[in-house]
Write a protein that binds this DNA or RNA. Structure first.
Lengths: 252, 252
DNA sequence: CGCCGGATTGACTGAATTCAACCGTCGTGG
DNA sequence: CCACGACGGTTGAATTCAGTCAATCCGGCG
């Protein structure tokens, strides 16, 4: 209802933040209409990117932040001894490039996983606007803080979870994020390859494949190529929380 | 020279930011004298904490950020299925509590590793001051960005490095940080236990111990209890970069 | 049709965990 | 003063989880 009647052209239109369905998730969240208007003034809309195109590259001067309007993006960096490490997957409403705040240049590369449309927010102008609009500054800090929190959650995972739990966490996380965006939490398409998932989770792609098979045999999910259906969310949740505590009753 | 003549009492004195030896590392970095004066106005100095005391706890409302004046602190959180995950070790000049920006409550717990003195910066007042002092706001953003970058580096490590490389990275990182603070990069004391190191690096404490032994047998370091001497920094560096590329010549 | 990339499956290997014994240091209390 | 236990650390042996190598499958595309 809120959206334009022609979804196919949505990404080509200059959708204002106020009209965007993602306003509750994105940077303008919680801004009053006047402040939102100001923010809209500096946002630029770029042509949609094709799958595999690079939004920005590690080391480039950080001139802008990018909000995903539709599509998905992976953040990654090459590791010194050869190879690549994926640091995150981003969905509509997410803000990219925050890592660049620390050094004035991006610390990782952002590559689209599918056709993706983007809103560009020039960083200098955002900083200036933050100085004028306290609510925006506060929200920006909140987003930075949440980026830190998200990475901490990931550190926790890589630090002490087994392959099975990692993949379950990954699926649950995706499920929740799709749900927040108004999509089904029980049926969605993975925009990333098994290789990418494994890389992200610190696992070999074969291990990812095997764990998917394992979940499927247990009847918890169905997976066909990139399409996932979750049948027993609870089973996956139990896997994530109850581990290493086989013998615990009501203790702790 | 810059410091007070009586080091034992230093932590009890109200050392101004301008006088603090950490000014180049800490939040006031790059502020002009007038702005620094303003920041000093809101900083509070707390009594030194003993080893093992908790500075703040996960879930508590985030009322302040904390700068370490002397000592060291670990950031950690309990994992759902029991156990603990350490997310970072912090040294003088580091700012703690940034993770709380995202949710208005701390996402992890901060515990001292030794006697530690702290400067407290009330968050509300800092936000207000940021609105008035653009340079401070900019610097605050930079610190948030660097926190993100630091965690990305850690994700990279946990994602695809072996035990040997992890420990070498860990030592090199500590070495560099001590160096930045004017201490010897080649001889220092670990303020954390083997258990903590292992937990942080995603390894069993026995593995940490064995790798230390391995480095020592190779003549790269000497380690006695908590005291580390690095004899061949280059050997450790080589370990971190050149891995998985035994056969590479000039390629790539 | 045959090729190619992504995904699956199987067999084998190995790095790191786990379990366990042992050691040295420190602090406490008899 | 020494005995004791607690704690942190080291070392050894057995186990296991996941990585590696390799063969095969499947769907899409030229």
């Amino acid at each position: 209802m809120v959206q334009n009647a022609d979804p196919l052209n949505l990404c080509l239109l200059k959708v204002s933040c106020a009209e965007c369905s993602l306003v509750e998730l994105c940077l303008p969240r919680c801004l009053d209409p006047a402040d939102m208007k100001q923010l809209e003034g500096i946002v630029r809309h770029r042509r949609p990117l094709q799958r595999g195109e690079v939004l920005y590259r590690r080391g480039e001067p950080m001139r802008a932040l990018y909000a995903i309007h539709s599509g998905s993006v992976k953040n990654h960096m090459s590791v010194p001894g050869g190879g690549e490490q994926i640091l995150g997957f981003h969905l509509p409403g997410n803000l990219l490039g925050l890592d660049g705040c620390g050094t004035d240049s991006y610390t990782c590369t952002a590559t689209t996983l599918e056709t993706t449309s983007i809103c560009e927010i020039p960083y200098g102008q955002l900083e200036s606007l933050c100085a004028l609009v306290p609510g925006l500054n506060r929200e920006f800090h909140r987003l930075l803080g949440r980026a830190i929190g998200a990475e901490q959650a990931m550190l926790l995972m890589l630090g002490n979870k087994k392959a099975e739990e990692r993949l379950a966490s990954f699926l649950l996380h995706l499920s929740r994020r799709y749900c927040e965006r108004g999509f089904s939490p029980l049926r969605f398409n993975l925009s990333m390859s098994r290789h990418d998932i494994g890389n992200y989770l610190g696992l070999a792609l074969e291990t990812v494949s095997r764990q998917f098979a394992h979940f499927q045999e247990a009847g918890w999910i169905s997976v066909d190529r990139r399409e996932i259906s979750i049948h027993q969310l609870d089973a996956l949740k139990k896997l994530v929380t109850h581990t290493l505590e086989e013998e615990t009753g009501n203790i702790a």
